[in-house]
Design a binder for these strands. Structure first.
Lengths: 148, 148
DNA sequence: CGCAATTAAATTGCGCGCAACCTATCGGCC
DNA sequence: GGCCGATAGGTTGCGCGCAATTTAATTGCG
């Protein structure tokens, strides 16, 4: 019988190892502007929807993170002066997150990061897009299964 | 100018999200046998090299984890009765990790896990292998860059 | 209206990952 | 033999991720 219980055979280990390896490339780059990788992801969403001031759960839906992760992370971003959190006046259960000027300004400092990361992977543009689309499909397949 | 700072464009987010999604599939399955995903990975290595009793750093080299992660993890596996840790007699700096009978027996209970996970991804066998090899290459490319 | 069920966010607890530091042991070199 | 640098593993501290619980506000339904 073929033995599937071997580390190097497992897609999942490749995924886990590659994800951490890529984060290793991000770390020194983001550290220079005082961010962690998840914090950078939150800012990506805020930059993308600037003016919207999404709620904590809207951020969570995009990033697939819950309030247990986001609440303390956003508190740290607020302490760093990059975002503001304020209770919605129309629905006081909601907390809206908006960029400060400093948070908006940070965007320019990381504008070349995606290119640098893509370079470090050693993949071609075509391979990058293919792998991205495959992995996005995997995440969505799994997510849809969990809904039912 | 094309805007690269968009979440859905980023390979890295796809990687990060897919990795967590796959772990979500593992969680209930491994929880049934009392393991976390990283603990399962350590056992994979031990099952693969049964008889070897690798050191902590040998495990770390395979999994790309350091003693800061492995030491407490191995302590928990030892408390669960799945592994033994003993100082090497020839070199008392080293700690060798070996399976207990219970640790060896656990293997049979997770033998079908890879197939179940592969199914949940929704990818074909061909796609799985392709993605695995690409991601392995990415991790190794990054790792080689860090060595220099 | 009044109350139960739902929803949003925060909090707590735990297990990673990783950097930084500490301790103990080993090897080499004189 | 005695010291010095290197190596192995452990510990501490911090920031995720996620489950489970708590608190507060809102909705729905009689």
């Amino acid at each position: 019988m073929i033995d599937d219980l071997v580390l190097r055979r497992q897609v999942c280990f490749a995924l886990y190892a590659a994800s951490r390896a890529v984060t290793d490339v991000y770390r020194p780059i983001l550290d220079a502007v005082g961010l962690t990788y998840p914090q950078y992801l939150v800012l990506l969403v805020l930059w993308e929807h600037d003016g919207d001031a999404p709620t904590v759960s809207a951020l969570g839906a995009e990033l697939r993170l819950d309030s247990g992760t986001l609440s303390p992370l956003l508190k740290r971003l607020e302490e760093a002066g990059l975002v503001l959190r304020r209770r919605s006046t129309r629905d006081e259960r909601r907390v809206e997150v908006e960029l400060t000027d400093a948070g908006r300004a940070l965007r320019r400092q990381v504008e070349d990061v995606p290119r640098r990361i893509a370079g470090a992977t050693g993949l071609s543009e075509t391979e990058l897009v293919a792998v991205r689309d495959t992995l996005t499909r995997v995440a969505e397949t799994i997510h849809r299964q969990k809904e039912q």
